[in-house]
Design a protein around this nucleic acid. Structure first.
Length: 309
DNA sequence: AAGGGCCTCAACCGCTATAGA
DNA sequence: CTCTATAGCGGTTGAGGCCCT
């Protein structure tokens, strides 16, 4: 199939926009709205292609665009999101009000990328370029174990699972399949009991929303790449980048925090769920409060119940 | 002062995704 | 289901400004 050229007409202007062209575009969009870019240039009296007009509007003329220097908070947000998503500029831009994907991309390439490199970090992976070079990086040489997992459960339960009941969570933790809904864990191959546990818990939490359930079922469970080509961590990336999840009263920092914790757990491992299951005295419902507010003591309490050390 | 190199960022290009006829 | 138009995305380019010698 022959591609339709963007600008087939002769005499189409390129390059920097003049103030007069900007005014024409602004006036037209204010009057007619942001649509019909293909025919807009002719109607607005502009010798530009529609695509050029759309980009000029979206990246420069739109009234809610924030210009000027990036704040340290914005730097931090971009760094964190880039570590999670990579070069998904449009997705990153949704977390920075008033900033365009183009602006963030430029800022990353001219500033933040350099800073990471100067710190000895790979700007793609955000990990040390030379593993022996510890400048600006605190390597996680320890095995993140039970307390991290306990905190993760804490986070997940508090943030997503307002109506998860204690028996259900108990069932999930001890691997009692009767408490796990069909279509969640069974249709997904995971690499370890730990992953299985976390996935199931997230799936249960997500079931609060039909949209999220649909997302998990259609996009993750039935994904041909899930069991063969797609790691569990990849699916968690998908899970957390999902719009519906993002809307669930969660800010960027919390999102990143949970993701980092998940990564730690998945990277360094915890005890096997089977160990917990076989523990005779294990009874997670005793004195436990999974929902509501948590503190360090609760974490330790959960830790004592949860993992074999 | 001049000019060469570097940097920034607006704009462009090529491609994919999606909607709708 | 297929085709086409349009929107959107990410990589790349290049004009213009800045800095250094």
């Amino acid at each position: 199939m022959v591609r339709t050229p963007c600008c087939k007409e002769e005499g189409i202007r390129k390059g920097a926009w003049t103030p007069e062209e900007d005014q024409r575009l602004i006036a037209y969009v204010q009057l007619h709205g942001e649509s019909g870019w293909r025919t807009l240039p002719e109607k607005a009296g502009l010798k530009r292609c529609g695509k050029s007009c759309r980009l000029r509007w979206a990246n420069y003329l739109k009234p809610d665009i924030k210009r000027g220097e990036f704040t340290p908070e914005e730097d931090d947000t971009i760094n964190k999101l880039h570590a999670l998503m990579g070069n998904k500029w449009a997705a990153i831009a949704t977390s920075l009000a008033g900033r365009t994907d183009n602006e963030i991309k430029n800022y990353w390439n001219t500033n933040l990328k350099k800073r990471l490199t100067q710190k000895g970090l790979d700007p793609t992976t955000h990990k040390p370029i030379n593993p022996t070079d510890q400048t600006g990086f605190e390597p996680k040489v320890h095995k993140l174990g039970s307390s991290g997992c306990a905190r993760l459960l804490n986070h997940v339960a508090r943030k997503y699972a307002g109506d998860l009941n204690r028996d259900l969570l108990t069932g999930i933790i001890i691997g009692n399949s009767s408490n796990i809904a069909e279509g969640s864990q069974n249709s997904v191959e995971v690499d370890s009991p730990t992953e299985s546990l976390i996935f199931t818990l997230l799936n249960k939490a997500a079931a609060r929303s039909s949209d999220v359930t649909s997302f998990l079922t259609n996009n993750m469970s039935s994904s041909p790449g899930l069991s063969n080509n797609c790691s569990f961590a990849d699916n968690l990336d998908l899970f957390f980048s999902n719009e519906v999840i993002s809307d669930m009263s969660m800010n960027v920092d919390n999102n990143v925090c949970i993701m980092e914790e998940l990564r730690d757990i998945l990277s360094y491992g915890g005890a096997d769920a089977g160990d917990v299951k076989d523990l005779p005295e294990f009874n997670v419902t005793d004195g436990m409060e999974f929902l509501g507010s948590w503190n360090v003591e609760d974490d330790l309490h959960l830790e004592n119940y949860y993992w074999v050390r």
